[in-house]
Nucleic acid binder design. Structure first.
Lengths: 229, 229
DNA sequence: AGTATTTCGATATTTTTATAGCGATTAAGG
DNA sequence: CCTTAATCGCTATAAAAATATCGAAATACT
């Protein structure tokens, strides 16, 4: 199995999102050119990304929407469902438990876990929440390999270690903590801070740029005024 | 103001997270080498990233933790607070309203908005929730330029357009929808799907790799067995 | 004081990623 | 049936990012 570049993997769901829309509208073919226009990704890039998933298109026509969807989904392993445990049924955790979107994307959250005894035992959006001390046992017994980490930052490292000891192979990390784990363990960070960082900086850059343009036009106006005088 | 590469911007919060820890522990200097070890980023990369924020270090010693923190924070504009409006006070939206982390990162969510009249008017984690029709007015009056988008996917595009019309310059998009907006508008996607895509694929790759190794060792065993015979 | 060691930061080099160019292929219209 | 136009997908180039190299600076140890 070839290793698909991260950046390609991150673009694939974007295409998929559009493709679902097309399928819904009854459109059955789509060109890479059009996908490029809609995503802002360069058309040759789209072609390369698509090529990596293994489908071939028809010149002058493009790709069959259904084929592309199938190809991307199977490439991302979104066709058969993987079980996952979620640890930390706080605000964010419980919002994820109810996120139906995941089921469409091959992720099946089968249980939640929390140290807080008042949360444990309850059902959140139809998902059962166990006390934390049952994690290791259930994880091994049910052969769950994906862990979703939504605990407070200060518990992240310890919880992650427990997950790994219990047989978790991949951690979807929603905490800002940088996990230090065994090399083989797959850690994927949903990095809100990283995203916010880009947003903040770009906005600052924009403000400055705009104010410079203001200055320029002011100066221009002055010059014109002076010319009038 | 120089334009800092996206990938650098995404690494800066990671360094910052570690630096807060060091400061908490009373450590007052840190080397790029050490940061590299902890983040897994190459040491020269760390140096380049740090250089972009404008600080200079001391050979043989490294950088003053406090200076680095200040430099990164000001680089990301996390020192002075920006106001933001959040639209879509559902599960995810309300979990974000209570996320105290943001205040430390220069983001101040001053109000929530929702079309659901039963939510509007209430307080969620001390943040007032207004009915959606007040958005445009309040946005202009309070000069809010950041919008957080946590509405259902099918309302994302329309809501985003309304935001832009009301004076929003940057949208922090938590929906899977690919927004089609004016070029000048800054859109930053918190792409859970993208993240999940990487996780799923990497796990598939790992499974296959492992099973291949299993086959190899089986074959090896067979060979050995045969040799024994 | 002099030497060894660590780390910085500037300058290559390599690698990866994105873009461009171009012939091949296929549907549609004359 | 032939030409035109659109698109694919391959190869080549360009840009960006990551990594390596190396001299200079600063501390600590002899």
């Amino acid at each position: 199995m070839i290793s698909i570049p991260v950046l390609t993997l991150k673009r694939l769901p974007q295409y998929l999102e559009l493709l679902y829309g097309f399928e819904h509208e009854g459109q059955d073919t789509i060109s890479a050119t059009r996908l490029a226009e809609l995503t802002g990704v360069h058309m040759t890039q789209v072609r390369k990304d698509i090529a990596l998933t293994g489908v071939v298109g028809i010149p002058k026509v493009g790709h069959k929407v259904r084929d592309l969807i199938e190809s991307i989904e199977s490439c991302l392993n979104w066709k058969d469902h993987s079980s996952a445990f979620l640890v930390g049924v706080g605000r964010l955790g419980s919002s994820l438990l109810g996120y139906s979107e995941f089921k469409r994307k091959g992720l099946n959250i089968v249980a939640g876990f929390d140290t807080d005894p008042s949360v444990a035992g309850s059902l959140v959006d139809g998902v059962i929440v166990h006390p934390m001390d049952k994690f290791a046992n259930l994880c091994r017994r049910m052969k769950v390999h994906i862990g979703i980490l939504t605990v407070p930052a200060d518990q992240a490292q310890a919880t992650a270690e427990l997950m790994v000891e219990s047989g978790i192979l991949a951690i979807w990390n929603f905490t800002p903590t940088l996990l230090q784990l065994d090399e083989g363990i797959i850690v994927e960070d949903v990095d809100m801070s990283a995203s916010l960082a880009v947003l903040s900086r770009r906005l600052s850059e924009k403000y400055e740029q705009d104010s410079q343009q203001d200055n320029k036009s002011k100066n221009k106006k002055n010059t014109i005024d002076q010319e009038k005088q």
